[in-house]
Nucleic acid binder design. Structure first.
Lengths: 348, 348
DNA sequence: ATCCTCTTTGCACTCGTGTGCAACGCAGCA
DNA sequence: TGCTGCGTTGCACACGAGTGCAAAGAGGAT
């Protein structure tokens, strides 16, 4: 407000037409060097900035990407968000943030996203990923899911290689001599949770262990603490627990130690998934399969921008491998752990 | 793309003019009931959504708020961000996220923010808060700082009542019998850090303690761990350490316990500020002054929207009090701790 | 039946910028 | 000198919606 400067003022001051001003700010447009200089001088003197809103309107592209997240208390998501913002900013895009609706009403959210004419959408693990992804895809806006997949055609996704990660954890725990297993699950609808659980069970079954006790943690710490009480409070409690993510694993460890009086890993081994910051804190020293945030973001952004900018029309499904990082929250097998780049990792 | 539906199509299908369509989506506009119904039916049938970009252009207001954050690994900020997003969404605004530039170049950031014609700006603890705030304010865009203040006129801010919180911590530690104090500082330029440190020292001095050992933690966990090594490694180490925030306090606790072999709180009491999620985890049980995120966000949003929507032109400076929450990371005074709403708090 | 009032509607202009098209100027060449 | 061609420039239209103004219509009072 208060006298915004438009290209008209700049044009007048530089003694050229408004078109010339526009061309100065359009890469690749035809403009003489000295004209450009005159315009740029006038623009600087007046403090002119092209209006991105007007530009979006005419260009039909807003250079904004909608990002929908939930669970921001799980440190994996802030990390993801920070890298996403950096990466998009570096490529000249901007991040419109939406939080997953607590009221489960995706329609209002969808309407807002569409109204802003975003060029693409990143969905990071909200309970309504699938529905939203389908709607947006149907509306012709490129979508990429992070940390979720979706069977529908046309929707890109980037996840960790959850199946192989969970298999590695199974092997790791078996190698340490464990035989009684527990699993603390995330939300049942989450494909990531399903992949991790199924592969973990399958691998154990392949090696002769068919029973795995299961409790729901629902991706929350309160839920995980409850699960830990049920799982570890029983007489025939498991001696190894795989939690669907680190966020829950931390709550499970705290409950085991401070509430149930168990020693970790002497009484029970606990492993997680994600390798988030707190997993590295010495109080937890959580053994966990890393989910490489940087790589995942790079792939997601590439998949999205390749479609937006017309380089590739097809949806892309990426699965990113991660190391099993060995720390002190689980019994350590005698063989198979090697030191790489300052970390102990499982390489059987 | 692919045949976006505009108000023209809706108007044609409903057999009215484009103006009528516009008025249907403008609250308070004059429109007959049955016309509205015909238009709404047509809009629904075609899947029409008003284009927020075009609307912003003509209205001169984008209903977008730029939010600049850094330090997303400190859980306080994800919490803040989540509430901010919810609150803004609920009021019909949208959040354009920017991460503080690592290259210290605020000009590029400033240009991008201005280009998008945001209606307001929230600056949450970036190193360049002051410069950016002044520029935006000069450009006529309402600004509110969270967790920082700025002496300049015209800039609103919301902080905790850092001075009183720090004084309470001083009293609390003195009451527990401590006499040798250490302080792990945040970034020197941060007003929050200055307020906390100054008030802590002043209160101790009032009560006869003039020496406080000081180390820089720079708001990072690596920096705090280094500070802890220097501070607690010396022979005459302090027996009580106040860390400028919880994020650093956690690193200091871990370093003390797992690296230096100290017992907390028997050998050293550690207190922080913010009362973030991890402070409540039993492994830390950090005594800390809460920074009430919900209240702070509410005040910040109110201050911003009151200016944007013209209800109030003046900048507003808010200081929010918070409880000193007593847990197990610091020695507990014999008197003064009471139980309120399921928490132990310091009420001398 | 006439006049007045109030509601509803459409016309036309506006927001700030991108861009196709045609005109212009200048240089090079025959 | 006259023609061709290329690089520059301005005109005018477009993007999609909000809104003041005046005309049209409905309804009531006289």
């Amino acid at each position: 407000m208060a006298g915004r400067i438009t290209s008209v003022e700049v044009a007048r001051r530089a003694g050229v037409s408004r078109s010339a001003v526009s061309r100065c700010f359009t890469p690749g447009a035809s403009i003489a060097d000295d004209t450009r200089k005159r315009v740029m001088d006038a623009a600087k003197a007046l403090g002119y900035r092209p209006n991105a809103i007007a530009r979006s309107l005419i260009a039909g592209r807003s250079r904004m990407i909608a990002v929908v997240v939930a669970y921001l208390e799980n440190q994996f998501y802030p990390d993801l968000l920070a890298r996403l913002a950096d990466e998009l900013q570096a490529r000249g895009y901007h991040l419109l943030l939406f939080t997953g609706p607590s009221d489960g009403n995706s329609d209002a959210l969808f309407a807002q996203i569409l109204a802003y004419q975003v060029d693409g959408i990143v969905l990071a693990s909200t309970s309504l990923s699938s529905a939203l992804a389908d709607e947006c895809n149907a509306a012709g806006i490129p979508v990429v899911l992070i940390n979720r997949t979706n069977d529908r055609a046309g929707v890109s996704s980037v996840t960790a290689d959850n199946r192989n990660g969970a298999r590695a954890l199974a092997d790791f725990l078996l190698a340490a001599g464990h035989r009684r297993f527990g699993y603390v699950a995330g939300s049942a609808g989450s494909s990531t949770n399903q992949d991790r659980e199924t592969a973990f069970r399958e691998r154990l079954a392949e090696r002769g262990v068919t029973e795995v006790l299961r409790e729901d943690g629902l991706y929350s710490q309160a839920g995980a603490a409850e699960a830990a009480r049920r799982l570890l409070g029983r007489a025939d409690r498991p001696d190894a627990v795989f939690c669907a993510n680190d966020h829950m694993a931390i709550a499970v460890m705290d409950t085991a130690r401070h509430e149930l009086g168990l020693r970790v890993p002497e009484d029970v081994s606990i492993v997680g998934y994600d390798d988030v910051g707190p997993a590295r804190w010495p109080s937890y020293a959580l053994t966990s399969v890393e989910q490489p945030v940087g790589t995942m973001v790079d792939l997601a952004v590439a998949a999205l921008l390749d479609r937006i900018e017309g380089r590739e029309a097809a949806a892309r499904i990426a699965r990113v491998p991660g190391e099993l990082v060995v720390r002190a929250s689980a019994r350590r097998p005698e063989h198979g752990v090697v030191r790489v780049d300052g970390r102990d990792v499982w390489r059987p």
